[in-house]
Amino acid sequence: MAKGVGCSTPLPFVMALVLATAAITSLAQDPSQLSLGYYSKTCPTAEQIVRTEMECAVKANPRNAAFIIRLHFHDCFVQGCDGSVLLDDTATLIGEKQADQNVNSLQGFELVDKIKEKLEAECPGVVSCADLLAVAARDATILVGGPYWDVPVGRLDSKTASLDQANSDIPTPQQGLATLITKFSAKGLSPTDMVALVGSHTIGMSRCVNFRDRIYGDFQLTSKSEASAQVYLSKLKETCPTDGGDDNVSPMDYTSPTVFDNAFFETLIQGTGLLNSDQEMYSSLLGFETSHIVEKYWAESISFFKDFSDSMVRMGNITNPAGGEVRKNCRFANA
């Protein structure tokens, strides 16, 4: 067992993880340079370390799975998958943690710190924080019942962050379908990628401030005021009053909130999606681009799992052409 690796009674892992093959030789972040074997010689235990720490974390709190997947998503949508979301503010750098969609919302930074500490103890200065997030997001998915995929690695960590891009590029819960499709398209991701990736909300929780407008807005219209929907809506309003309680949370998939499955898509078909941005994929007048995908994923979980895996790889391959480094501490650029 690698140094620093260990956790009592780890969760069973569904599949052996693929180890990583070449030394760090380039400073450019070109997607074509990512490979499955990037660390096989320089840190062959890298994925084992990440896997073990994620097993411990998800066993302790299943919500850690959603935290890590969301961190990876928010990282990739700003400057590419370069670990910029992890940077703390300093006297010379303004990070992304105070962006509208991040502040008081993103969690999991301490877990990233812990994994990075283990990696540095085993292979100092070798495994990037961006790769850590990509591998951990895959492991998080598996640990709550989702699909496996091979994660190409070799990303570098940005030395900079962009609060402005975080505020402009990350999709928000209040946005309409046309805006959402445009934001995903700007990252090279299709409407199918968007619906598949949003499917990760099957294990997510949302803050009241993000779904208040929805439950006091068109929720009754999209749910057709059915009795079961009214009971659910009443519970949501108890959780999220018209005033106050901004940080109260509710699961986005209320039937199986800790299991990665396709039940989330049923909520959209029933018109009871928690977030406006989610329900828009099925109920919007522009939904002809996405509603059939929602129906397909609810009918065929295998299709959802396959497309989610493929889309996570595509999103993970968005790199920062400016290049970067391998940070020793994920919160700060190297001195």
Results as ranks from 00 to 15, higher is better:
Gly6Glu: 11
Ala23Thr: 11
Ile24Asp: 08
Leu27Val: 08
Gln29Pro: 00
Cys43Lys: 03
Cys43Gly: 04
Pro44Gly: 05
Thr45Trp: 04
Met54Ser: 12
Met54Arg: 13
Glu55His: 09
Cys56Gly: 12
Arg63Gln: 15
Ala65Arg: 10
Ala66His: 10
Phe73Thr: 01
Gly80Thr: 07
Gly80Cys: 07
Asp82Thr: 09
Leu87Gly: 04
Gln98Glu: 13
Asp100Cys: 03
Phe109Val: 13
Phe109Arg: 13
Leu111Tyr: 12
Asp113Gln: 14
Lys118Asp: 13
Glu122Gly: 02
Ser128Ala: 12
Cys129Gln: 06
Ala136Ser: 15
Ile142Lys: 09
Leu143Asn: 10
Pro147Ile: 09
Val153His: 01
Gly154Glu: 06
Leu156Ser: 02
Leu156Tyr: 05
Ser158Lys: 05
Gln165Ile: 05
Ser168Gly: 03
Asp169Glu: 10
Asp169Lys: 10
Pro171Val: 07
Pro173Thr: 10
Phe184Pro: 00
Gly188Gln: 02
Asp193His: 02
Met194Gln: 04
Val195Thr: 02
Val195Lys: 01
Asn210Ser: 14
Tyr216Leu: 07
Thr222His: 07
Ser223Thr: 04
Glu226Leu: 11
Ser234Ala: 15
Glu238Met: 11
Thr242Ile: 12
Val249Ile: 15
Asp253Tyr: 06
Pro257Gly: 07
Val259Leu: 15
Phe288Trp: 13
His292Pro: 00
Ile293Arg: 00
Tyr297Gln: 04
Tyr297Thr: 04
Ile302Thr: 13
Ser311Met: 01
Val313Gly: 00
Ile318Asp: 00
Ala322Asp: 02
